[in-house]
Design a protein around this nucleic acid. Structure first.
Lengths: 141, 141
DNA sequence: TATAGTTGTAATCAAAATGATTACAACTAT
DNA sequence: ATAGTTGTAATCATTTTGATTACAACTATA
């Protein structure tokens, strides 16, 4: 199974707000048409990003605004903000048989390696900031 | 979303076959009771592991047997054998709007970073062999 | 060679997660 | 007041997963 597109949607959303925010009013409808998903999906994304302190959104007046330094937002922060993975990335079969020497010890043998792999992925995400992405993007616009 | 437990089930299955295979006949029923899943789930796992050349299984007589050097099987090989992830680990929203400067370039900006993160995870899995796991396990049995 | 024990695989099924969508109350600037 | 938004609940269809049933095909051996 793959990691939910909520993540790339959230990155796209933040980039839009931080790059186009000075030029346009960033409503959920506007962002939705850039990302190409339903506006409600964007509103939910905005909720998460707001809860993480990355943007400000005001009900009523509308429009999302940057709320953090772009150097202080990493892909990992976004990934965490939208709950791509709750806790462990790898599912583990429930209740391996404790009466079997393998079943009894499978967690002891495997857990640390799975955790290492997950950390390797997350560390990579920690190494990329919104500033990095904006720099790349500005070269292309 | 998490990575399917097919992966940990497959690792468990291989460990059982390679560690207990000399002592017991490793039928799908036997393994299923160690892993604690339905025997058909194990048969499907065995199919995948057999296709990857890691075990031999004969229909009829029954019982799975080791078919590869334990130093030549990594967690990554197992992960690939059971198709935990087809291609990209991260889902990407379909059809970002090419008329928007962000939508038009989001893939150019994001793809390489996602790919790097996935590779970091997979490289970690490549660094662990079945031999490593068996060594750990034998200390605990 | 008949039989018991297996594997291989198709077909269903229920549960969970996802994203789409509708609906509407609540809010705010003008 | 009103028009335009956000926040959020409620549904829905789709997809994925793993469980399970069922049964044909296969193999060792008694």
């Amino acid at each position: 199974m793959k990691i939910t597109s909520r993540f790339t949607v959230a990155v796209h959303t933040l980039l839009a707000i931080y790059v186009l925010g000075k030029e346009y009013k960033m409503t959920s409808d506007f962002i939705a048409s850039s990302v190409n998903v339903n506006p409600v999906v964007i509103r939910r994304t905005l909720s998460s990003l707001k809860a993480a302190g990355m943007i400000d959104v005001k009900a009523g007046s509308g429009g999302a605004l940057p709320a953090k330094d772009v150097n202080d937002i990493t892909l990992y922060d976004i990934y965490m903000a939208v709950d791509c993975v709750e806790g462990d990335l790898f599912n583990f079969h429930e209740n391996p048989n404790p009466k079997c020497p393998v079943g009894k010890n499978i967690h002891a043998v495997l857990d640390s390696h799975l955790s290492d792999a997950q950390m390797a992925l997350e560390n990579e995400l920690k190494g990329v900031t919104l500033a990095d992405l904006m720099e790349q993007l500005n070269l292309l616009i």
